[in-house]
Amino acid sequence: MSQTQVRRRAALSNELAQKIVDAAKEAATGLGIPSSVAVVDESGHLNAFGRMDGAGLLTVEIAQDKAYTAAGFGLPTDQWHDFIKDDAPLAAGAPTGIRRLIVFGGGLPITVDGEIVGGVGVSGGHWSDDVKIAKAAVAAFEAAVAA
């Protein structure tokens, strides 16, 4: 089999994915926002998850969908609104037609050397707070990879 027929992908280890979840939970605790945190692999499959005490039931699914959206498109979820708002067909069809698409903040892609290796999604507060928590999680990932 030639190299052109098989593509190798970088992947997050379970240990590193759990560190990302832990970093997000620590950031959420610092903000006083009980949250759910999901980390998915490059294919959108759940790798690690944590739900803090007091996080709402719906945060479980929303966090996973934010991570899925971020990994699936390589775009932070908070950029989707601006991406689709001036395109009537896309604005009408994307949120209802693309399963699991989230168009508000809290989901970030996780990349290594420009390659998507996963996504993190946070849900628990206002989406702007979820973004702050997700950024703290990605920063912890970047520090771990750099070490």
Rank of each mutant, 00 (worst) to 15 (best):
D78C: 02
Q3N: 14
G54K: 09
S13D: 11
I102Y: 01
P95W: 09
K135S: 09
G105M: 08
H126Y: 10
L58Y: 09
G93A: 13
D82W: 01
A24R: 10
L58V: 13
I116F: 02
A24W: 10
L108P: 01
G97T: 06
G50R: 08
A67S: 08
S123Q: 05
A136F: 02
Q18E: 15
G125K: 09
V145E: 14
I98L: 14
L16M: 15
A55L: 05
R7E: 13
L58C: 00
D113I: 00
A134T: 05
S2L: 11
V138P: 01
I110K: 01
L12A: 11
A136E: 08
S2I: 07
D22Q: 12
K66W: 03
K132R: 13
A136T: 02
W80M: 14
A144H: 09
G50F: 05
D130W: 07
T111Q: 15
V21G: 11
K135I: 06
G44N: 03
Q64R: 12
L57Q: 09
V103C: 09
A67Q: 05
A28P: 00
S128G: 00
G93N: 14
R51Q: 12
K25H: 15
A63V: 05
D129N: 14
V145K: 15
S43V: 05
F49H: 04
I84E: 09
A88H: 03
Q18F: 07
A17L: 11
V122A: 07
S123H: 03
L57D: 06
A27N: 08
T59P: 02
Q18K: 15
L75E: 10
G114A: 07
T4P: 00
A91T: 01
Q5C: 04
G97H: 06
A88F: 04
F104W: 12
G105H: 06
R7S: 11
V122F: 08
G54W: 08
D113G: 01
D41G: 10
A23G: 12
H81E: 11
R51C: 02
G125P: 02
F73C: 01
A28Y: 05
I102N: 01
A28S: 13
S43Y: 03
V37T: 11
P89N: 13
L12V: 10
M1W: 07
A48K: 05
K66I: 03
D65S: 07
D86Y: 09
D86T: 12
A27G: 10
A143D: 14
T111L: 12
R7Q: 14
R7V: 14
A23Y: 10
I20Y: 11
L46D: 04
Q5S: 13
V138I: 15
D87T: 08
V138S: 07
V37F: 04
Q18D: 12
T29A: 13
S43N: 11
K19G: 01
D41I: 03
A136C: 04
E42M: 04
R9Q: 12
I98C: 03
D65I: 00
D113M: 02
K85N: 04
S35L: 03
E142N: 15
N47T: 12
K132W: 02
D22F: 05
G93M: 13
D87E: 08
I116H: 02
R99I: 08
A146L: 07
L108Y: 05
A11P: 00
G119Q: 04
G107Q: 07
A67H: 03
H81F: 12
R51W: 03
I20L: 12
A17C: 10
A147N: 11
M52W: 02
A92R: 10
W127M: 03
